[in-house]
Amino acid sequence: MRRQGLARYFRSGAIWGFIVLELIFFTVAGAFLSNSDTGFLDPGNMLLLLKQSAPLGIIALGMTVVMINGNIDLSVGAIFALCAVVMLDSMNWPILAGLGDWAIPFAWGLALLTGMGLGLVNGLIVWKTGVDAFIVTLGAMLGFRGLVFMYNGEQPTYHLNWTMVDIAEAGIFGLQTPVLVFAACILGVWLLMNKTVHGRNAYPVGDNREAAVNAGIRVGPHMVWNYVLIGFLTALSSITFYSASGSVNPNDGMLYELWIITAVVLGGTKLSGGRGSVIATVGGIIAIQLMRKGLGFIGADTAMVNLVIGSILVLVLFLDRQLNRKSKQDLRI
C-alpha cells in the first residue's frame, strides 16, 4: 500500500519538479549560451510563455476530461482550423459585414457552435455505433480536415478587424487576453472535474465502464457531453488565437492532437481512462512550452525540441512503469 501511495505522490508532483528542473537548467545554461540580454526567468519572457501556452493548453484541458472518461480525440487539430475558418469567413458575409464591430460576437458564437457541433458528431458516433473512440476521431481528423479544405479550397481565409485584434491583445496587469481565457478555462474545468457530479462521474466511466452503467450513470450521454466540451474548448482556443492573427491556412492545427496528447500524458493522465488531473495537464503544457522556449533560448533549433520532447515522453512512460511495478511478485510475461 505504501509503495502505491508513494508512486501516487510522485506522479502528481513529478511534473512540477520537472518544470523546476527545466527552469534551473535553462537559467544556468542560458547564462553561458544565450545571446539574449535578459535572463530566461525575465518576467516578460515568462508571460510570453504563458500566452504561447494558451492555445494548446485550452484544448488540452478538454482532452484531459475526454481521456479521463476513457476516450480520446484525435480530431482537435482539424476542429481548431475549421472553427477559425468559420469565424473569419462569417465576418465577410454580407449579413454580418453590415453590423460593423457587432459582427464579432456573432462570429465568435458561430465558431463556438461549430466546435460544439463537431464534438457532438464525434460523441454521437462513439456512443451510438460503439466504434472505438480512437478510430472514430481518427476518421474525423481526416473528415473535418476535408471540410476545412472544402470550405475555401487551398486558399487561406482571412478577415482583419482591428477591434477584434484589440480585444485579443488587450490585457490586465500585463496578462493578455489568451492568458486570462486560459486561466478561466483552467478554473472552470477544475471546478467541473472536482466539484460537480458530471465531473466525478467521468472517473468511474473511464475506470470501469460496465460498473458505471450498472450504477445507473448514463454513460453514452456523459461521453457525448465531454466531446461537446472539448469541441467548445477547441473553438475557444481557436477564437483567442485567430482573433489576433486574422488569417487561417487550411493546414493550420495539424499535429496539434499529438502535442496535446503528449502534454496530457506527461501530466500523468492514464491513457485507458479513470485517472488524471486538470492541474497536472497544465503542468504538462507548461513543461512542453518551456522546453520549446528554453531550447530556443540556448540556441538549439526546433529539431532538438522535437528530439528532446519525444525522448522525454518515452522516458516518463518508462519511469512510471518502473515505479508502479510490484517488483518481485510480478509474473514474467
Binding site: K195, T196, V197, R200, P204, D207, E210, A215, G216, I217
Partner: peptide
C-alpha cells in the same frame, strides 16, 4: 468488484447517485 479506484469510498458508495446541490455540484 466494480469500483472506481481513483475515487473516495464515499463517492463509490453513492456511485451514480451523488447528492447534488445547485448547478450540478456535489
Amino acid at each position: 468488484l466494480s469500483l472506481a479506484e481513483e475515487l473516495s469510498v464515499a463517492e463509490n458508495v453513492y456511485l451514480g447517485e451523488l447528492p447534488r446541490k445547485r448547478f450540478g455540484r456535489v
